[in-house]
Amino acid sequence: MVIVVPIKQVPETSNVQMDSVTGVMIRSGSKAILNPLDLYAIESALRYKEACDARVIAVTMGPQSAMKVLKEAIAMGCDDAVHISDRAFAGADTWSTSYTLAKAIAGMGKVDLIITGERATDGDTGQVGPEIASWLNLPLVTYVSQLIEMRSDSMMVKRMTEEGYQKLEVTLPALITVLKEVATVRLSTLKGKMRAMDMIIPTRTVKDLDVEPSYLGLKGSPTKVVKIEQARVKRDALIIEAMEADKVPDAVISLFDFLEDKQLLEKGESR
């Protein structure tokens, strides 16, 4: 069987600090990394491979530098990788991105399963996975928190919801989006890293894909960003010092006064 994992390169955010005056994120160097939530999609695909003998293909759309995240996927154990890159794709929203990725996946022949992360940590929409499923008319299972049974023609999974979780069965081909709790991510091996280093990853451009040009990139995107503003982040905290135990009761009284004043103690429904 064939499993495709669409992944994304995002700006690194783990070492950033906040500007103490404006409260805005300072992106020192802003290194680009593999979207952390995509690691769980790769890990799920590799587990499936171990259970059902699958070939796992990682795919990403992005500039030349995005090749790096594909190498990372290979180092973890993916069999193949495809890089989709063309100026024509630049500035695509989720609708246009998912169209391009779906077309690239459709061009790979028979694909049994597509696994994506829940969302990317930069755009934070979580829409590309579900939209790929829609372009390819696949059944879609989102927010998967456990792979209960993995078979070559169907699978049983646990899906998280606001109320709890569902246990459900889906036939393949299908697309699932996975959560962080689906599995513990493995480290890449030395052998994998060497394989990644040597591997020549093909780049597909607009002319390699059977796409409608008017659907691509910024121009093909139904949504347009019209304004960007800095978010209000900093608040003027009332700071109550209570390091010594005898100051604690007064601090707690101030806390309750605050909660009462803002009507945060009102009983009634909690949701």
């Binding site: 906040m18 103490s20 409260g23 982040v233 900093k234 608040r235 003027d236 905290a237 009332l238 700071i239 109550i240 010092e241 209570a242 390091m243 135990a245 100051k247 604690v248 601090a251 707690v252 101030s254 806390l255 605050f258």
Partner: peptide, 13 residues
């Protein structure tokens, strides 16, 4: 940093 975006902060154990 949490204090920067708090409306009320108690600094204590």
């Amino acid at each position: 940093p949490i204090i920067q975006i708090s409306d009320l902060a108690i600094v204590g154990d």
